[in-house]
């Protein structure tokens, strides 16, 4: 099973869900499949799960999907305990486990050895934990998670390798502004403060 095939299988199911992608090729694959202002592409290894928790807690009526990786989650295992304790019912935490640091020439991660991230999630207190080894299992797990009103952890065991897609042409600032403006518009919120000072006051007499 390839990560890109998993993403392609579930992309048509997405509506206004917000997505956080991990550092690495997943951002390019997802942006190619679902170019949407509700995608936030992190340039950090480790914080995908935490970023998704922040979104989920702050917007409890909106579904949040995290596309995390094994190397990233191994760097921030404590986030699983924090997420399970907060128990946001609108969060789907998906980990594409390719058992390596793919963007760093494929050195093995701990999941290539003994570590099982699904068991860690269960131990931290996640109640809905799915391990998917086939595309059908992944699709079924995602379908259930999307339909439910509860926290889900889906571990997708995938082969290493990235799809041949164009690079997501989106820099950090651009990504942030597009995302926040989309939230402001879709949630009717005012988030970014604008400067109050101006060279002249048009209302001045």
């Amino acid at each position: 099973m390839k990560r890109y095939d998993c993403l392609r299988a579930v992309a048509p199911r997405f509506g206004d869900e917000l997505v956080v992608t991990n550092l690495g090729a997943v951002r390019h694959e997802w942006q190619a499949l679902r170019p949407h202002p509700g995608n936030y592409h992190l340039q950090n290894l480790g914080l995908t799960s935490s970023m998704a928790l922040g979104l989920a807690l702050a917007l409890p009526h909106r579904k949040i999907v995290a596309f995390d990786g094994d190397g990233s989650l191994l760097l921030n295992l404590g986030s699983l305990a924090t997420i399970a304790n907060q128990h946001p019912t609108n969060l789907i935490h998906i980990v594409f486990d390719n058992e390596c640091y793919e963007s760093s020439r494929g050195a093995p991660t701990a999941t290539a050895g003994q570590a099982d991230l699904a068991a860690v999630a269960r131990g931290c207190g996640f109640t809905h934990v799915v391990t998917a080894k086939t595309l059908a299992e992944f699709e079924e797990g995602f379908r259930r998670a999307l339909k439910s009103n509860d926290l889900y952890f889906i571990l997708a065991k995938v082969e290493a390798g990235a799809a041949d897609v164009p690079a997501a042409a989106l820099d950090s600032q651009e990504n942030k502004y597009r995302f926040v403006r989309y939230i402001e518009q879709s949630e009717n919120l005012k988030i970014l403060t604008s400067t109050l000072s101006r060279a002249s006051d048009p209302h001045a007499k």
């Binding site: 917000l18 956080v20 936030y40 950090n44 480790g46 914080l47 995908t48 799960s49 935490s50 970023m51 998704a52 928790l53 922040g54 979104l55 989920a56 807690l57 702050a58 917007l59 909106r62 921030n76 404590g78 986030s79 305990a81 924090t82 304790n85 907060q86 942030k176 995302f179 926040v180 939230i183 949630e187 919120l189 988030i191």
Partner: peptide
Amino acid sequence: ILHVPLCREEEGIGICAGAYLVGK
């Protein structure tokens, strides 16, 4: 105040960044 106790401080930066983007 929504209080989120952490396991490691670094995850808190990620949580706050996410929450900020949607208005907290």
